[in-house]
C-alpha cells in the first residue's frame, strides 16, 4: 500500500522535472524515468501484461522523441503576461482538483473493486475458453469488438503517418508540385 504511494510520488517528481527543465533532451529523459516508474507500479499492482507492453512502448516512444529533439534547443522565453497566465492556469487547476476530490470520494475505496462482470470473465476463461491468461481472453474473445475498433484506430494512425511522411504534394492541373517544399 505505502509502496504504491511512494512510486506515485516518484512519478510525480519525474513529471514535474520533465515539464519544468529547460533542455529538451533532459525533458525527454525525465519522461522516460516517469514511464519506467509506471512500469514498476504496474508490476506492483499485479498487471504483468501491462508491464511488458508499457516497457516496450516506452522504449519506442523514447527513440521517437529523442530523434525528434536532438540538436534542438530553445531558450526559455518569459515575455508577455507571464504572471497573469500562470495565475489563471493555477486557479483552473485548483478548481479542477477540488471537483476531482469530490468525485473520487464517491468511488469505492482503494482495494475493493466492484467485480460484477469480471467474476463472469474469471470463471468462464478457464472453464469454456480453456485459456489461462484472462487479460488476453478478454481482449480477444469476450470483448473482441473493442479490439477490432482499436485495430481500426491503429490502421488510421498508420495511414496518417504515411500521409505525413509523403515528400511530394498533390499534383495540380499544371503538373507542378502544389506543396512548397
Amino acid at each position: 500500500m505505502i509502496e504504491i504511494n511512494l512510486l506515485l510520488i516518484f512519478i510525480i517528481i519525474a513529471a514535474i522535472v520533465a515539464v519544468e527543465v529547460k533542455d529538451l533532451l533532459s525533458s525527454v529523459v525525465a519522461v522516460g524515468v516517469a514511464g519506467f516508474g509506471l512500469v514498476i507500479s504496474f508490476l506492483a499492482l499485479k498487471a504483468p501484461d501491462l508491464a511488458i507492453t508499457q516497457l516496450v512502448v516506452e522504449i519506442l516512444c523514447l527513440i521517437i522523441l529523442i530523434r525528434a529533439t536532438i540538436k534542438i534547443d530553445l531558450p526559455f522565453s518569459t515575455s508577455g503576461r507571464w504572471f497573469v497566465n500562470t495565475l489563471a492556469c493555477i486557479a483552473f487547476l485548483v478548481i479542477f482538483l477540488s471537483y476531482g476530490y469530490a468525485a473520487i470520494s464517491s468511488l469505492p475505496s482503494f482495494g475493493n473493486p466492484l467485480m460484477k462482470t469480471s467474476n463472469f470473465y474469471l470463471g468462464e476463461t478457464f472453464k469454456t475458453i480453456h485459456a489461462t491468461n484472462v487479460v488476453s481472453a478478454i481482449n480477444l474473445n469476450f470483448r473482441a469488438y473493442d479490439t477490432l475498433g482499436e485495430a481500426t484506430v491503429l490502421f488510421a494512425a498508420a495511414i496518417g503517418i504515411m500521409a505525413i511522411m509523403r515528400k511530394k504534394g498533390k499534383l495540380t492541373k499544371a503538373g507542378k508540385d502544389d506543396e512548397s517544399e
Partner: peptide
C-alpha cells in the same frame, strides 16, 4: 499469448 503474460501487443513491438 494465451497461456503466459504477453500477447500480440507486447510481442509485436518486441
Amino acid at each position: 499469448g494465451h497461456i503466459s503474460p504477453g500477447g500480440g501487443f507486447a510481442g509485436g513491438f518486441i
